[in-house]
């Protein structure tokens, strides 16, 4: 009797793709998920619209207007600089260099550590990993305040070097934790086979293990780049004008006093948001594993 209902009923149908029948429950479910995406995407759509409005339309809340792309030009030009005292184009470039530098350092330093922690059980390896994770959760100001003093004495305040250094707090835990989980998934027998083929440990690592975790390296690097890019507190306190980053530059457009430029603010926000969004969509497949520090493997 139960068989007549077929192998897929109730939750099993909810769990498995391919449901087609329309029921009141399915309509409610469709509306609910639609409602979420309206809520989730509307602010982004609104930001794009606002960024395309000219100065006359910027305070209007209408959806119909004649769009212009002039705002992006303004943000990146001298006029934007005059309004905010920040060179937005320069800030974008600084952000790219800071983040690329920070990720590069993290990869060079982190890959061997991730490999060691993934391959060997050695005294202190768990402590090392926990210490890395604790950086992820530590309140940034705990180190920023002393670093503010230290940077000033070392002369790296408001420099890219200083930012690359402090961004390790963001990029390093990601790189090490994600890559350790990739190395753990890789059968050690592949490297063992290479050793018996006559290759040294270094070459077995470089020619066998490393190429096989390339997706992991790409995912970790891009995700680390995104989070470094999105960081706000470090550049807010540890840079001034020479090494200002995008996140700080965007907020300058809100800076009160005088006339407000909502369209320019939106354009700056869009420019600052775009690189992470594009990168995130390219590594979507690896995102879950990265965001959970390797804890959830999708």
């Amino acid at each position: 009797m139960l068989r007549e209902r077929g192998p897929e009923v109730a939750l099993a149908r909810e769990l498995t793709p391919g449901q087609k029948r329309v029921t009141p429950a399915s309509v409610v479910a469709d509306l609910a998920i639609l409602a979420w995406f309206v809520f989730s995407l509307f602010p982004l759509v609104w930001m794009v619209l606002l960024a395309l409005k000219n100065d006359a339309d910027q305070t209007s809340t209408y959806f119909r207007f004649s769009p212009t792309t002039a705002n992006f030009g303004t943000v990146l030009s001298q006029r934007g600089q005059d309004l905010t005292s920040v060179d937005f184009g320069q800030a974008m470039l600084t952000s790219v260099l800071n983040c690329a530098g920070a990720v590069l350092v993290s990869l060079v330093v982190g890959i061997p550590a991730a490999y060691a922690a993934g391959r060997w059980k050695f005294k202190g390896s768990e402590d090392l990993m926990f210490q890395m994770l604790s950086f992820r959760f530590a309140p940034e100001l705990m180190v920023i305040v002393p670093l503010f003093v230290i940077y000033n004495t070392l002369g790296v305040f408001d420099t890219k070097l200083g930012m690359v250094w402090v961004l390790q707090l963001v990029t390093m835990p990601l790189v090490v934790w994600i890559l350790r989980s990739y190395f753990q998934d890789l059968s050690p027998e592949l490297e063992q086979a290479a050793l018996l083929d006559g290759y040294t440990r270094r070459r077995a690592f470089l020619t066998v293990a490393l190429p096989l975790v390339r997706p992991g390296i790409a995912a970790a690097a891009l995700l680390a780049f995104i989070f470094a890019w999105n960081n706000y507190l470090f550049p807010l306190i540890l840079t001034d004008s020479a090494a200002t980053t995008v996140t700080v530059a965007v907020t300058k457009y809100l800076g009160g006093g005088g006339q407000a430029y909502y369209n320019l603010t939106a354009a700056a926000a869009l420019l600052g948001a775009l690189p992470p969004l594009v990168l995130a969509l390219t590594i979507q497949r690896y995102l879950v594993r990265g965001l959970s520090f390797g804890a959830v493997k999708a």
């Binding site: 449901q19 399915s26 469709d30 998920i33 995406f37 982004l44 992470p276 969004l277 995130a280 995102l287």
Partner: peptide, 28 residues
Amino acid sequence: NRSTLIGKTFERLLILPLMIAPVIAGVI
């Protein structure tokens, strides 16, 4: 997880707010 047309269409866009810098989200 129901894999409806709406879900499949938008699933890729689910993460967008998460990838924007929180400070920029604040500005928006």
